[in-house]
Amino acid sequence: MTSASGVVANSIRNKLQTALETTHLDVINESYMHNVPKGAETHFKVVIVSDKFDGLALIKRHRLVNEILKEELKNGVHALSIVAKTSKQWEESEKTVESSPNCRGGFGK
């Protein structure tokens, strides 16, 4: 699984890295799976491993990530799938992430 490159992907990566001091980070552009132009940066999946998640319930972790990526979500990124683990949870997991569900039409945007 390779991490995406692109203006938005880079911005997402930088912000998450800085704010969460990630020990593992994957930014995957899943836009190609959807009804959008080639090269679009609209649908992302992020795999974040950070000890800043320690003691935070899942919803709080997601809210934290949404907050960090507030601008991106307001400007064009319209799907964001989040995997948020602490390094301990990551070590215990299989370190693989399932791909997101297939698109079912949407509105072409």
Binding site: A79, S81, S100, P101, C103, R104, F107
Partner: peptide, 8 residues
């Protein structure tokens, strides 16, 4: 459903 995430 018109979106994979909604379908899930």
């Amino acid at each position: 459903p018109r979106c994979g995430f909604s379908n899930a």
